[in-house]
Each structure stands twice: as structure tokens, then as C-alpha cells.
């Protein structure tokens, strides 16, 4: 094998791959770094919006409005968000509950009323469920049905819309995701009960 043959056959592919990889990594890193602050701000807003929504408040439409309302009503201590009413008394407690999902971890902010015995509401902050099926846990009917319910919950088929205090509807076509969501809610219920014991 001639010298140029050796170079063309063995060295050049490695060099070209290395250079191309370096260029691609640089490009991706540049995009990542330049959007990092924005992503962080988005994540912060997602959490604030979730806490306000779970506590049953009207979530302002603008980012600034969300920040202001959050600052005025919510305090965080040791992972527990205390949401006050306008008179300054605690109206709801919320915390982040995570658990397994079908494809990845599900993260939710779950809020309880001031007695810690009833769900005030839920909002999901991270999930990778199947779009159109499991991802429907983020639809408002699924989240709204939790308000005022008492843990531990059990689940009915979608469309039952039971008014019983401990029953919620599952999602058709997403039985596994529904079960994961149910156990997430129930573990949050246990955690709320333990917080009550501590108070």
C-alpha cells in the first residue's frame, strides 16, 4: 500500500470525522449556552405557574403577572410551598411529587387545602408520556377533577365523572399512565398526612 493510499484509507477518515465532530459539538454547545438562561427562566416560570394553578388561583396570563402574584402569596420552606390568601393566612400547601411514568419520570406540583386533608389541585411540571394518550394527564379536565377530592383515591373509567369524594376518572387508552398518576397522587396524600402530623 502506497503512502498516499495509507493516508487516504486510514488517516483521512479519522481526521475528517474528528473535525466534523468538533464542529457539530461547537454548534450544539453554542445553541445550548445561548439559550440556557431562557430555559432556566422558563423552568422557574413553569414551577411558579404550577404552584399557583395547583393552589386553585387564577394564573395571570403574563410572565410578569405570574412572578408578581407568586412573590406576594407564596413562600417556600424546605420544599413545601405555602400559598396564602389575601388576608395572609395559609390557604394551601403544595409540594413537588415525582414518580415513575410510562416513558420517564413524572413530576407534579400537588397542592392541599389548609387542613392538608383535601387535594386543592395538581399541575404537571415534567412528563414524557405518549402525546395524545398518556400526555392527556396535562389536560385541564384531568387536573381539575382532583380539586376537593380526599386521598386515598381510586379510579373509574374515563367519563364516569363520579362525585364521590375519593374517585377520579382515568384516561382511556392510557391505563398505565393513569395508574402511575394515581399512585403519584396517593403518595402525595400520604406525604400531606405526614406533614399534618408534624405541624
Amino acid at each position: 500500500m502506497s503512502k498516499t493510499g495509507f493516508y487516504a484509507e486510514r488517516i483521512r477518515p479519522v481526521v475528517v470525522t474528528a473535525v466534523l465532530t468538533a464542529i457539530c459539538i461547537t454548534l450544539v454547545s453554542a445553541f445550548y449556552l445561548s439559550t440556557q438562561d431562557r430555559v432556566k427562566e422558563n423552568e422557574g416560570l413553569v414551577l411558579k405557574r404550577a404552584v399557583l394553578f395547583a393552589a386553585g388561583l387564577n394564573v395571570p396570563a403574563t410572565n410578569q403577572g405570574i412572578n408578581e402574584l407568586y412573590e406576594s402569596l407564596v413562600t417556600e420552606d424546605n420544599g413545601v410551598f405555602t400559598v396564602k390568601d389575601t388576608s395572609g393566612k395559609p390557604a394551601a400547601y403544595a409540594f413537588i411529587q415525582t414518580g415513575p411514568g410510562l416513558w420517564g419520570e413524572i413530576g407534579a406540583v400537588i397542592a392541599f387545602d389548609s387542613s392538608l386533608s383535601q387535594f386543592a389541585g395538581v399541575d404537571f411540571i415534567s412528563q414524557n408520556e405518549t402525546p395524545g394518550l398518556g400526555a392527556r394527564i396535562t389536560e385541564s379536565w384531568f387536573k381539575e377533577q382532583l380539586r376537593g377530592k380526599v386521598p386515598p383515591l381510586k379510579m373509574n373509567p374515563e367519563g364516569t365523572e363520579s362525585s364521590a369524594p375519593s374517585e377520579i376518572d382515568a384516561i382511556t387508552g392510557a391505563s398505565r399512565t393513569s395508574e402511575y398518576a394515581l399512585s403519584l397522587f396517593n403518595r402525595a396524600g400520604e406525604r400531606a398526612a405526614s406533614l399534618k402530623g408534624g405541624n
Partner: peptide, 12 residues
């Protein structure tokens, strides 16, 4: 992820 976080989450 930076500019359409909600759709990004749904598309997963």
C-alpha cells in the same frame, strides 16, 4: 425548549 416550552414538553 427555549421558545416553545409547552409544545416541547408535549412532543417529548
Amino acid at each position: 425548549r427555549a421558545f416553545m416550552p409547552e409544545i416541547w414538553q408535549q412532543l417529548g
